[in-house]
Each structure stands twice: as C-alpha cells, then as structure tokens.
Write a protein that binds this DNA or RNA. Structure first.
Length: 390
DNA sequence: CCGGGAATAT
DNA sequence: TATATTCCCG
C-alpha cells in the first residue's frame, strides 16, 4: 500500500512536471515561431512534443511519437525521453577536431575560457531547472538570430544587472557550464541553411560543423566561413566593452575580444564588427532632414559611443564614474537600436579610395578613459584619432 | 603578430 | 544594400 501511495504521489508529481513542461514548451514554440521558415522542423518537433505531453497527461499513454526513442525511462521517466528530442545530442569533442586543422590555423589560442564543450551527458537538462534552459537558449541566441526576438525581453527582465553575461562569460560558470555559441560553422558549399544537419545541430547547442571539404577537391582552402550574425546580445556586449575601452576608436580588436570573453569569437570577427561600427559612427548626421544634431535625437553620444537616449544616464554614469570593475553594470535596454543609426546611413564611402582621406565629422565628447592602465597608448591613439578628424 | 582598411562574398 | 569574411599592407 505504501507503495501504491508513493506511486500515486509519484504520478502526480510527474503529472505536474509535465504540465510545467507543456507550458514551457509552448513558450518555446512561440519563440520558435518567429523562425518558422528557418526552423520548420524545430517547430514541428516542439509542437509534437507538446501534443505528446498532453496526451500523456490525459491518460492515453501513447508515447513513441516518433517511433524512435521510445519511452526509455531514464531516471526521470518519459518526460525525459521526450525532452531528449529537443536536446540535440551533443556529441562532445568529436566535432571540433574535425575541421580544426585548417580553418583555424592559429586562433583558439584563447588561454582562458575557450570552448570547453563540456562532456556529453544529456541528462544535464535537469528538470526543475528551466532557468538553465533559458540560459542555454540565450547563449545560443547570442550568435544567430539576425533579427530581434521578443522573447529576449522577457528573459532579460529576470536577471538584469548583467548576471547573465557573467554566467555566459564562463569565468565563473560554476552553476552550469553552458557553452557559448560556437560560431564556427564553416562549410561554404552546400550551405543552405535548410539542410537538416544545420537546423537540428544549429538550433541546439550548435557546434561546429565537421564536414566540409569533402572529397578533397576542396579547391584549396578558399572556403569562406559561413556568415554569422551578431546578435543583439553579442552586440550589446560589444558595446559595453567598447565603453570600457574608451570608444570605438581607441579600442583594439584584441582587447575587445578579450574583454568580451565570448568563446569562439575571433579577432577577425571583432575587427570586422568594429570596422563596421566605426563606419557607422563616422557620418552620423545628414540622415534626418529636420533635426540637425538637436536634442530631439534619440541617440546621444557618450564618450564617443552612441547609445539610446534612454540609457544615456546610466551609460554616462559609467563613463564618468567607470572604473571597469563593475564590468557589466549598465546593460542598455534590450531595445533594438544600439547602432549609431539603426538602418542605413547613406554613406557614400565609395569615393574615398585613398586611405586617410575621410573627413568625417565626428562628435566625441571626451572619451571615458581615464584610469586605465594601458591608457598611454590609448591616449596617444586617441589623440592621433582626433588629429585625424579635426 | 596585430591593427586598419579595402576587396570580396553572401 | 547591409553586413560578414578575407586579403593586403604597414
């Protein structure tokens, strides 16, 4: 009898959990929905899983949604089994070395964090811990996700104060070593995001694709890395770091990369991003006819960095008070506009063939770099920069 | 090697 | 067109 009771209890518990998961999954589905086109299978999977859960709850035990992965009960019962569907099996280190050889000849030197794709136990999904899931999701979002996703807002709210980032950074990832997005999916040919591999692998803990360069034809190492987008999260971090370093014109790619502590991020990528960013900052005005640098503008310049006006105060505080310690103090709001001007600035850079000939008008109110250790070089740099533009 | 920037690809 | 990647040079 006791047994029965405990069973019952167990059942109820399980049921409760299932309900929770259904909710969570539905939430998830809403998010994924945004990417319907990109992740049709993902959506399908989640949908099916939701149905499966519901059925399960309603008593009709019918698992085996897919025929595969039948209710193998692991420690957690079938919830786990189904859940597993979503967790792309992370085969640990295998993928890495596969392509390592030539795509990245130097890189990955990164002393500290690196991608420690931690082991393989998929059980770490851990039931009661949905936070983890969101964290994980978020970190994934860090890299892909060309456009904004509403969900992000939500998550951000719960942990302001940059804890996320902290965790992401991995410098103290005791709780959960969630990997950061590896962005290194190379493979230039046959790309097509629709390839199943890409999707399933990509949506989950995406690892680097192993295969490429098949058949040895490979035509040399000319392949380009697959294009990856800087998510807002990522860009936000970029901005933060930039702020710490004193602005886009004094920060150096390497420093930025180091401070960002995003594993897998390379200097080149940072450099590129920085370049783009600088371009944007170069010719700020002339887009909007009416307001010429008036107060009505939604962006303000803080230490040479454009930030949304809303966050101006905080940013400013940091800029002046600063002292990098509180690294992630001021997170700018999750709003989409972190760029000098969100969309295109009609920039006619075509002309300037010769280097150094650009005469952008740039307003930079004293860079917020005072107490940095390596200030000297920066200072010089900054002066150089000013000279250039004034 | 690193950084800036232009050329090139997506 | 915008943005990311690669090439080139100092």
């Amino acid at each position: 009898m006791i047994k029965n009771i405990s069973n019952m209890k167990n059942y109820n518990e399980k049921r409760g959990r299932c309900c929770e998961y259904i909710e969570a999954l539905e939430e998830e589905r809403r998010k994924i929905n945004v990417f319907q086109r990109e992740l049709p299978l993902c959506l399908e999977l989640v949908t099916q899983a939701i149905e499966a859960y519901k059925k399960e709850i309603s008593g009709t035990t019918m698992e085996n949604v897919y025929g595969q992965s039948e209710c193998s009960e692991q420690t957690t019962g079938e919830c786990g089994a189904i859940l597993d569907l979503f967790v792309p099996i992370k085969h640990s280190p295998t993928s890495i070395e596969g392509e390592e050889e030539e795509v990245d000849e130097h890189d990955d030197d990164d002393d500290d964090d690196d991608d420690d794709e931690h082991e393989s136990h998929e059980t770490d999904i851990d039931f009661d811990d949905k936070n983890m899931k969101s964290e994980w999701l978020k970190s994934v979002q860090l890299w892909n996700q060309p456009d904004a996703v509403p969900s992000k807002k939500l998550e951000r709210s719960q942990q302001e104060s940059g804890t996320v980032v902290e965790a992401i950074k991995g410098n103290d990832n005791r709780a959960a070593s969630h990997r950061l997005p590896c962005y290194k999916t190379s493979n230039g040919e046959n790309d097509d995001t629709k390839s199943l591999a890409t999707i399933s692998g990509g949506s989950g803990p995406q690892k680097k694709e192993a295969e490429k360069n098949i058949g040895g034809s490979s035509s040399g190492r000319g392949r380009r890395k697959q294009r990856r987008c800087w998510s807002q999260e990522l860009h936000k971090r970029f901005l933060n770091v930039l702020k710490q370093l004193g602005g886009p014109h004094v920060a150096t790619p390497k420093q930025i990369r180091e401070l960002m502590k995003v594993d897998g991020l390379t200097n080149d990528e940072v450099k590129s991003h920085l370049q783009k960013y600088r371009l944007h900052t170069k010719r700020p005005s002339q887009t909007i006819s009416n307001n010429i640098n008036s107060q009505t503008q939604h962006f303000v310049v803080v230490g040479g960095i454009w930030v949304p006006q809303a966050s101006h105060s905080t940013a400013n505080a940091v800029a002046s008070g600063e002292t990098s310690t509180g690294i992630y103090g001021p997170m700018v709001s999750a709003l989409p506009s972190e760029w000098p001007s969100h969309s295109n600035f009609c920039r006619t850079i075509s002309e300037e063939r010769s280097r150094c000939s650009n005469k952008g008008i740039l307003r930079c109110s004293s860079p917020a770099m005072s107490s940095s250790t390596r200030t000297k070089t920066k200072y010089a740099k900054y002066h150089n920069f000013c000279k250039k533009y004034y």
